[in-house]
Design a binder for these strands. Structure first.
Lengths: 130, 130
DNA sequence: CCTCTAATTTGACATCTATCTATACAGAGG
DNA sequence: CCTCTGTATAGATAGATGTCAAATTAGAGG
């Protein structure tokens, strides 16, 4: 794998000044070129109808994981195409896979969607008071 | 304009049952084909480093709006290219423009980013208690 | 070892997209 | 009216991307 973690994703978006983040990172300060590039590649990963449905199918599947065979069956696309989309999602760090016998199961990488969400909108992280 | 509002974006993601939404729409139930297509076209609009920076620049600019001349100056790209990206963002409903004299000003379309955010993550809406 | 099925990789191809140059449009000011 | 500046459109081109068919890998089970 060429890259796994995205440094642009704030794990703690709240500023250190004791005040809670005023707003989403995107509207707090202009993105730098490299931040924008990192973010864009993440959004590119989900900016596809097949990949969005894959994410959704995986997330909604019982146990939070889904076999490739289930996923492939949900589309009118060939297995290699589904495999390609899964690879894109995996490379973006959004999902992870695990082989069990003949089958391969995919599940959401926890936190990734929420972090992306936090980039766009305010107050997405769970309240710090809790 | 061929399309303006995206029916897939929930204006009120909280369920009517008095309970707050369990999770993001994406992980509540599998997306339908058309929902996924709608969403994908929205995410495609922001899945570009230049457009992300444009959104960020506009959002951070004083008065919440920015002139095309300011935006163009922030990149090493030609004016037509910037104009193209602004058009993409506008067609997606993310920004809106207003001509004042010779200059054209762009501003964020309120709520759009938050709605996108709500698709991905839980608890994006501002707390109802506030 | 052979075979069968599940999944991925490879390579090709058509389509889409980001960018540029050149041109056109819009308003301000001689 | 003409010209100048700011913005948008049109057309062209290089590169990225989604899809498929064919070939390959991985494990299960004769």
């Amino acid at each position: 794998m060429s890259k796994q973690e995205s440094p642009v994703l704030p794990s703690a978006p709240v500023s250190a000044e004791g005040e809670q983040a005023c707003c989403a990172p995107l509207v707090c300060a202009p993105l730098t070129e490299s931040e924008a590039a990192e973010l864009a590649s993440l959004f590119k990963a989900i900016a596809d109808p097949v990949r969005l449905r894959l994410l959704s199918l995986i997330a909604c599947h019982e146990g939070g994981e889904a076999c490739v065979c289930d996923l492939t069956a949900a589309f009118e696309l060939t297995a290699p195409t589904i495999s390609h989309h899964l690879k894109v999602l995996k490379r973006a760090g959004l999902i992870d896979s695990q082989r069990r016998g003949t089958w391969v199961y995919y599940r959401l990488n926890p936190g990734m969607l929420e972090r992306l969400s936090a980039i766009l909108g305010p107050r997405t992280a769970v309240p710090a008071s809790a």
